[in-house]
Amino acid sequence: MERSRIAVAGASGLIGSALVRSLTDDGHEVVRLVRRAPRGPGEVRWDPERGSVDAAGLIGCDAVVDLAGAGIGDRRWTPEYKRLIRDSRVLGTAALAEAVASLAEPPKVFVSGSAIGFYGDTGDRVVDESAPPGDGFLPSLCVEWEEAAAPAEEAGVRTVFVRTGLVVARGGGAWGRLFPLFKAGLGGRLGDGRQYWSYIALADEVAAIRHLIDGESLSGPFNLTAPEPLTNREITEAMARVLRRPALFPVPAPVLRAALGELAGDVLGSQRVVPARLLESGFRFAFPGIDDAIRAAG
Rank of each mutant, 00 (worst) to 15 (best):
E43F: 05
E43H: 04
A9K: 00
G265L: 09
V20K: 00
P250V: 05
W175R: 02
P221T: 11
G27C: 15
P288E: 09
G13H: 10
A207W: 05
A115C: 14
V157M: 02
V127W: 07
A297Y: 07
I213D: 00
L84R: 13
A276K: 06
V44G: 01
A94T: 01
A174M: 12
I290K: 10
R32E: 13
W175H: 07
S22H: 14
R170T: 03
D124L: 11
N223G: 07
V44S: 01
D62M: 03
A155G: 03
G40I: 05
P250S: 08
D87R: 15
R3C: 12
S130G: 10
W197D: 00
P246E: 11
P252A: 08
P107E: 02
R21E: 06
R76P: 06
R295C: 15
E234H: 07
F222Y: 10
D291G: 08
D266S: 10
L96A: 00
P246H: 13
P221M: 03
G265Q: 09
S22L: 13
R163D: 12
A293W: 11
L138D: 14
W77F: 14
V109N: 06
Y81K: 06
F182L: 06
F283K: 04
R177T: 15
G92N: 03
F249Y: 13
G187R: 07
A201I: 12
E280K: 11
A174T: 14
A207G: 08
Q195V: 09
L243R: 09
R75Y: 08
D54C: 00
R86A: 09
L260C: 05
I290A: 14
A226F: 15
L19V: 02
V111C: 03
R32G: 02
G51Y: 05
L212T: 07
L268W: 10
R245N: 11
T122H: 02
R76M: 04
G10S: 06
L91A: 12
P252Q: 05
E105C: 13
T24S: 10
L19S: 02
G289Q: 06
L260R: 08
R272S: 14
E262L: 08
L91C: 06
V65L: 03
A149H: 00
A169V: 09
E29M: 08
D214Q: 12
G261E: 05
D124C: 05
R50P: 00
R295P: 11
A174H: 15
V31T: 08
G171R: 12
